[in-house]
Every structure is written in structure tokens, then in C-alpha cells.
Design a protein around this nucleic acid. Structure first.
Lengths: 214, 214
DNA sequence: ACCTGAACACCGTTCAAGT
DNA sequence: ACCTGAACACCGTTCAAGT
């Protein structure tokens, strides 16, 4: 009467399940809350158990990035190359606004996972179809990527009004004779430090520049 | 016979000296080595002494940023607005390449110190002289700032060849039928992920886009 | 007025061991 | 084969105290 288990012992978790739990913790409490100890606690295992799935924290974060961008549909839009490329970038921006921690992970380490590379593939494809040669296409994509991630990294996405107020105060405290341009554009500078309008201005300006190169 | 000291006791250090010592440690060993404990040790004081100069670590980092960018001459170049703006950005890039930690500090927190704002002032002034109104000028500067800091944050500045090799390997491992554009531009993509050529392409494309708007 | 040790509440990771 | 506690070498910061 064979009991249920001569079977080889199997891990309680898969790396994917660990990564998903990490992403959930990230969404709930942010990157600073995602420690190996906290995550292990939430999963009900010892801290060191996690090191059976990932060699270290960077590897875990790599996997978190992968599950975070995996499955997102990369909405295939139509229209001109310019329209489609703009839509792709706006979709990336929406993802980064929804998950600011992804930017913090990317700033720690390059990410070369297949799921993450779908974004580059989609961008490159549009640029090649538009007529750019391989070298210009990769550089153009790099420019768009840098702007999109840079804007997410360096422009506040929450507490926007507090940040604007701080900027107004800082500019107001400068000696106007040494900072005339900032003094004359105080409100505009406070507006431009965040938000969708300044992002759109940047994106459209880059697309203008690319169009001029064709 | 008055001895040398009825004078009020004076602090052993000034905030500026502390910030300078922190910058030196940063240059020598990078941001991850700059802890309150390490810095206090190097200065030969107790850790908590530093909290007499700065309320917390973020305030110290703010001051480090200020001394790092302070005094740099912002080389006044001449030529067209386009030439001068390009030179300003290239100078900022050189500073960030020389001190990658500044980018890591900026990603932690906005910096609104007078010395740091000289860069925005110089950029805005050129853009206003070129003919941009206040709103477009601030947005244009924000675009250039975002690209410059973004490139420094997301493109490796050392171990470039190792990073390129990793990118080649990752692209090579992708199924070519699902990633045809990347497969066809593998070497170009590896090149474009870092270096001055891709930066120059981006900068010139942005300047093209701005010129088209005038 | 200025400085500081001890303590609190955390980290990531190595190592040796437990089932 | 899989899991884990203890330990190591760190963090930033609060508190109460020392000169």
C-alpha cells in the first residue's frame, strides 16, 4: 500500500513565484521595503531559502523586472512611423509611472532579459521600417529610451505640487541679478519639472529631430 | 595672565569641511562607501557629531552636490545658440562622467541649491536669447537635462566592453524570428548602449528638434 | 555649547548544519 | 535535495549622557 510519497522532494516554490511575490511587495510598499528578509518572511520561509532560487538580490531584481514587463501587450498601433513610435514610448511611460520602482531597479543594473528586450525590438522595428539604417536606428532608440527612463528617474511623479512649491521657493531665494533667466521663468520652470506636458514636449521634439534626419 | 582661551568654544569643523571630506571619500571609493559612520571615522569624530552639521544623510548629500558643482566655471563659449547650448551640455556630461556618483545622488532627491541651479540658469539664458518663450525654454532645458542625466544614469560609463559583450550575448540568445530587428542590429545595439557617439547623436537630434521649433 | 557611546531596528550574505 | 539559524560585517538615526 504505497503511501503518497516515494516521489523526489520538490521545492516548495518556483523562482517565478518568488519573483511575483517580490513584485507584489514592491507594488505594495516600494523598493525600499523589498529586502531579502522581508520577502522571505512574507513567503513563510527562512531568509536563506531565497538563495536557493537566486544567487543574490540583483538576480532577484532582474527576475522581478522580467515578470513586471512580461505579458504586457505592447499595443500594436497603426498610422505613421512617428505615430506608432510615439505610442510605444507613451505606453512605456505609463508603465513606469505605474511602477516607479522599475526605474530604480534599472538604475542599479542593466536589464537584458527577453521580456525587457521586447520594448527595444518593437522600437527598432518601427525605426527600420521608417527608413533608418541599423546604426541610426539603435542610436535613435537609445535616445528615446534615455529620455523616457530619465524623465521617470529625474522628474517627481508623486508629491508633484510639493516639489513645484520647493522649486518656486528655491528660485525665489536666488539673487535675481545673478539668475535673471530663472527669475523671469520661475512659474514655467516649476511647471516643467514634472507632468505630462513637459514629457510630451520632449517626446515631440525628439521625434521632430528624428524626422529631420530621414 | 590670561591664558589663551576664555573664548567661546568653537566647532572643530564647518559644514563645508564635512561636505568636502564626503566628496573626497566619494571620489575615492564611490557612493556606496559614503556612510555616516565611515565619514565620521575618516574625520576622526564620533558618528553622531555629523548630525550637528546636517540633520540627516540626505542633507549631507545635498551639500556634497553643492560643493561638487560649485566653482566650476561653466565655460562661456561663443558662436550660435546651438553651439553654445551644445557646449554647455557637453560640459555637464564631462562632469557627470568624472563623478558618476552625482547622478546617483540626483536620482535619490531633487537638488535645488544655488550652485546646481547655475546650470539651469545658463541653459535657460541661451534658449531665451535664441528666441524661445519662457514655457518652451524651460521645457527644452528639461529635455536636455533629462537626456544628459538619463544617459549618465542608464548607459554604463565603465566596464563598457563587458557590458557590450553581455548585450551581444543576450541578443544572440534570443529567438531571431521573434526578435528580427535586434538580431539584425546586434553589433549596432551593443555599440549604441554607451559611449560618446550615441550621446552626440542624441544631443544633435534634440538640437535639430529644437531648431525646427523656432 | 559641543560632542558622543550605546542602543534600536534594520541590511545582504557566508557558513555550517539540520532533516 | 532542500532548507535554515547563527553569525559577520555592515547601515541611519534616536536617546540620554558626558565635558
Amino acid at each position: 500500500m504505497a503511501r503518497t510519497s516515494p516521489a523526489p522532494r520538490r521545492p516548495r516554490l518556483t523562482p517565478d513565484e518568488v519573483a511575483r511575490a517580490a513584485l507584489e511587495l514592491l507594488d505594495r510598499e516600494g523598493l525600499e521595503a523589498l529586502s531579502m528578509r522581508r520577502l522571505a518572511d512574507e513567503l513563510g520561509v527562512g531568509t536563506m531559502t531565497l538563495y536557493g532560487y537566486f544567487r543574490n538580490k540583483d538576480e532577484l531584481l532582474d527576475a522581478v523586472m522580467d515578470v513586471a514587463v512580461g505579458g504586457a501587450p505592447l499595443a500594436p498601433s497603426d498610422g505613421s512611423w512617428r505615430q506608432r513610435l510615439g505610442d510605444l514610448i507613451r505606453e512605456a511611460r505609463r508603465n513606469l509611472v505605474a511602477r516607479p520602482s522599475l526605474v530604480q531597479i534599472r538604475v542599479r543594473q542593466p536589464v537584458l532579459r527577453p521580456e525587457a528586450l521586447r520594448f527595444a525590438e518593437a522600437g527598432l522595428r518601427i525605426l527600420r521600417e521608417a527608413g533608418f539604417e541599423a546604426q541610426d536606428a539603435t542610436r535613435a532608440f537609445r535616445l528615446l529610451f534615455t529620455f523616457t527612463f530619465g524623465y521617470a528617474a529625474f522628474s517627481p511623479s508623486d508629491a508633484v505640487e510639493e516639489n513645484r512649491a520647493a522649486a518656486r521657493a528655491a528660485i525665489g531665494a536666488l539673487p535675481p541679478d545673478r539668475y535673471p533667466a530663472l527669475a523671469a521663468a520661475r512659474e514655467e520652470a516649476a511647471q516643467a519639472m514634472a507632468g505630462e506636458e513637459a514629457f510630451e514636449f520632449g517626446l515631440e521634439t525628439i521625434l521632430d529631430g528624428l524626422e529631420a534626419r530621414l
